[in-house]
C-alpha cells in the first residue's frame, strides 16, 4: 500500500504562493506521508485521493482563505468562550460575520445529487472533507447541528443574508505531496 496524496483545492489564491500558510495538521500529515510514499513507478503528483474542497458563496469569508485555514480552530475556540460564557453575539468591529460554527455551516453546507444537505457522516461534508484527510477528529458535531436549519434560516447577524447562493460555482486546484512537504509547520494556540 502506498499513500497517495493530491489535494484538490478550489482556492486560486493558493496558486499565488500562500502555501506556506496551510494548517499545521495538513502540512504535518503531508510531511509524514511524503516519507511513506514508496511507489517509485508513479509520479507523486499523480497520486492520491483527491479531496474536493467545495467553495461557498464565492463572496468573502471572515478572513482571507489562507488565514482562515490556519486560524479557524482558534477562532472557533475564542468565539465559543465569548458567545457562550460572556454573551457576546456579534463582533465588536461591526463586521458581523464571526467565528460562529453556525455561520460556517450556513455558508459551507454541501448538497448531494438529490439536493439534500450532506451530514457529518458523509465524506463530502465541508468540514469532514479536509479533517478526514488530515486524520483530525472533529467533535463539534456531537452537539452542534451539521447542516443549516433551513435554507432561509441564516444567522440572525449574518452578512450573507442577501447572498444569492444559486450562483455558487465550485472550482478546483491540485496540490501535491511535494507542495505540502514544503510547507513549514507553524504552531499557534490561544491556550494560555
Amino acid at each position: 500500500m502506498w499513500l497517495q496524496l493530491n489535494i484538490n483545492f478550489s482556492f486560486s489564491s493558493l496558486l499565488k504562493g500562500s502555501l506556506q500558510k496551510l494548517p499545521l495538521s495538513v502540512a504535518g500529515l503531508a510531511l509524514m506521508a511524503s516519507f511513506t510514499t514508496v511507489n517509485a513507478e508513479v509520479e507523486q503528483d499523480e497520486l492520491g485521493p483527491r479531496i474536493e474542497i467545495p467553495e461557498s458563496s464565492g463572496k468573502s469569508c471572515v478572513l482571507p482563505e489562507d488565514e482562515i485555514r490556519r486560524k479557524h480552530p482558534d477562532m472557533l475556540k475564542h468565539d465559543r468562550i465569548l458567545t457562550l460564557r460572556e454573551g457576546v453575539r456579534a463582533k465588536a468591529d461591526g463586521n458581523n460575520l464571526d467565528g460562529s460554527l453556525k455561520q460556517c455551516i450556513n455558508c459551507h453546507a454541501i448538497k448531494d445529487d438529490n439536493d439534500q444537505y450532506v451530514r457529518i457522516d458523509n465524506d463530502k461534508h465541508f468540514c469532514v472533507s479536509c479533517h478526514k484527510y488530515a486524520a483530525v477528529t472533529i467533535d463539534c458535531f456531537q452537539c452542534h447541528r451539521d447542516i443549516p436549519e433551513g435554507s432561509s434560516n441564516f444567522h440572525a447577524l449574518s452578512g450573507h443574508k442577501n447572498t444569492d447562493f444559486s450562483s455558487v460555482t465550485p472550482g478546483s486546484y491540485g496540490l501535491t505531496v511535494k507542495d505540502m512537504a514544503n510547507i513549514a509547520p507553524e504552531v499557534s494556540s490561544d491556550d494560555k
Binding site: 453556525k102 455551516i105 451530514r119 456531537q142 452537539c143 452542534h144 447541528r145 443549516p148 436549519e149 434560516n153
Partner: peptide, 16 residues
Amino acid sequence: ETLTDQKTTTPRGKGC
C-alpha cells in the same frame, strides 16, 4: 446517547 438533528440554537449531545 448520540443525538442528531439538534437545533442550531441549542447544541446538545451525548455525555453532557
